[in-house]
Design a protein around this nucleic acid. Sequence first.
DNA 1: GGCGCTGTAACCTTGTGAGTTACACAGAGG
DNA 2: CCTCTGTGTAACTCACAAGGTTACAGCGCC
Lengths: 145, 145
Amino acid sequence: MSANSRLTVAVHVLTWMVLDRREGHEVATSERIAGSVNTNPVVIRRCLGDLRKAGLVEARRGTGAGWVVTRDPESITLLDVYEALDEGGLFGMHNARPNQSCPVGFGIQPTLRQVYDGLEDAMRKQLAGTTIADVLRDVLARQRE
Amino acid sequence: MSANSRLTVAVHVLTWMVLDRREGHEVATSERIAGSVNTNPVVIRRCLGDLRKAGLVEARRGTGAGWVVTRDPESITLLDVYEALDEGGLFGMHNARPNQSCPVGFGIQPTLRQVYDGLEDAMRKQLAGTTIADVLRDVLARQRE
DNA sequence: GGCGCTGTAACCTTGTGAGTTACACAGAGG
DNA sequence: CCTCTGTGTAACTCACAAGGTTACAGCGCC
């Protein structure tokens, strides 16, 4: 379970919902989504809960309940999705505080913080360049391969 | 244990070794390094083992044993360090294979693979822009703050 | 051979994601 | 007002990986 599949699942979910909507379904249920992702509906609901907090989807309750995407898929970037999940940063600092009486131990964390911030920035710019609509287009194009 | 501190530790180790060398010490022992990182010597040896496989450091044995950095710190980029650790990718795919009879389930993985490769690339370019010498310079500059 | 440190194996602990079960809650429709 | 469907969440288990620790064999200079 080393690598995080949460972004993968979230993008899968949104892409699926957009396609499902396009095929005429009013709402998507966590159970049907789970059928495509191949996992448990609760895992999907947890994911959708994060996306809802970020305003990307909405839940309807009562009869005919389910989920809808609230924004134009052209306007949802993978950065929006990434931020909705609030993952911890890519790289972490030391577990134990390094020796503060050693010059390196004292200065290394602020220095690396700066480096890691630059990395996150580069990654965000890259993520911002792809939208859910792009992903859906690409996914559908692969059907013919 | 969410975030990986392995890159942080590896950079700390190399930076410390360069400074230690500059202060006149022939070799560095895992125990002394562990004193700065504030962890167990075995953890440091494991880290140094990875760096050795990548040719960044060398171990000497017998009396006066220890470790030396084999390359000019100006020539060691953080990308070299990152690659020495061979981490898994930043984001993982689904744990269970998505439903292949669903268009999204079928096409999503190759699509995301391409997106994630782009991310890794951006991150690598960023990492390649900083050297151990840069880090040491920055670390020492922070002593006066 | 003694000594100091490397190089690893083996083990424990802990944090976390994923999967699962269970159930209270919402709300449309009869 | 009762039923039915699906949300929203808590609680639990399982698997895994990193970090920490102990232990010990190996190496090579003295």
